[in-house]
């Protein structure tokens, strides 16, 4: 990928990136109640990294984020399958999810879902896949 060397873009990205990343995490966690979820969150995170890629070059991005995205994909798949298979231990059909409410001292009432773990798998897979695609194409010159 070409180094665009664009001062305005570089400066703007430094600020924007955190907002996008934060928002993507928010949108992922909110997914069960409000629009969002693993797909959108993952895509948005990937979008943030793509923005970084467009602004800087691939080597810089690999330096900032030394993640093997193929392994991230695998981890995501494991999460999804693991959460789905977890219900088998409790003699429930594959993919049965559980949820419960927990009261934590500072954060207040929390609703915890195993479905969120599944969604986290989706999130990882989406980020991993998108970034694998973009990175491999970008690296190929």
């Amino acid at each position: 990928m070409r180094n665009t060397n664009n001062i305005i873009l570089e400066t703007a990205v430094k600020v924007l990136l955190f907002f996008i990343a934060l928002y993507s995490v928010y949108i992922f966690t909110a997914g069960h109640y409000y629009p969002g979820g693993g797909f959108i969150g993952g895509l948005m995170t990937a979008g943030a990294i793509v923005l970084l890629l467009i602004t800087y070059d691939i080597k810089t991005v690999v330096g900032i984020l030394p993640v093997n995205f193929r392994i991230l994909t695998a981890i995501g798949l494991l999460f999804a399958i693991g959460t789905s298979a977890g219900s088998l231990i409790f003699d429930a059909p594959f993919l049965t999810h559980a949820f419960g409410d927990v009261h934590l001292p500072i954060l207040g009432d929390l609703s915890l879902h195993t479905a969120t773990l599944f969604d986290l798998g989706v999130y990882f897979v989406v980020v991993g896949v998108t970034m694998t695609i973009i990175q491999t194409i970008g690296e190929d010159e």
Partner: peptide, 19 residues
């Protein structure tokens, strides 16, 4: 939603295949 993401994957695959 499923279809959108899948079609993204397929389009990417197709693009790279063409390339």
């Amino acid at each position: 939603l499923t279809a959108i993401v899948i079609s993204f994957g397929v389009t990417a695959f197709f693009l790279v295949l063409a390339y």
